[in-house]
Computed example of a mutant assay.
Amino acid sequence: MNEEELRKRLEALKIEHRDLDAAIDALATANSADQLQIARLKKRKLKLKDQIALVEDYLIPDIIA
């Protein structure tokens, strides 16, 4: 993947992460909160966070001091 594709992928991951956060909040405030579904969404959100960090590491070069 080139840098432009990585930036697009990063933006898509961040959008999905925000959407999952909103979905988790909505389910948590609902009267019939499904704890299993919330747990699954949180797990997916953590995976996305890891993927975001990985893509950011590719985009931001390490600077050795």
Rank of each mutant, 00 (worst) to 15 (best):
K45Q: 11
D34N: 09
E3H: 02
D34I: 07
E56V: 03
K43R: 08
D21G: 10
A12M: 02
L6I: 06
M1S: 13
L13A: 07
P61D: 08
K14R: 14
M1A: 10
L6S: 05
A30D: 10
Q51N: 06
A22N: 15
A39R: 04
Q51F: 06
E3T: 06
I15Q: 03
H17T: 00
K43Q: 12
K8C: 02
E5S: 05
A30L: 08
L48H: 02
A33Y: 02
I64P: 02
A39S: 09
A26G: 11
A28S: 13
A26Q: 13
K47M: 11
R40Q: 14
E3W: 02
A30N: 14
D25H: 12
I52N: 05
R9D: 03
E4T: 11
R40V: 11
K49V: 04
H17I: 01
L20G: 03
I60A: 09
L59V: 08
L46K: 13
L36I: 09
I15G: 00
Q35P: 08
I15K: 08
A23Q: 15
L46F: 11
K49G: 03
K8V: 02
L6W: 07
D25A: 14
D62C: 07
R44L: 12
A23R: 15
A28Y: 07
D50R: 09
L27A: 03
I63Y: 04
D57K: 14
E11C: 01
R18S: 13
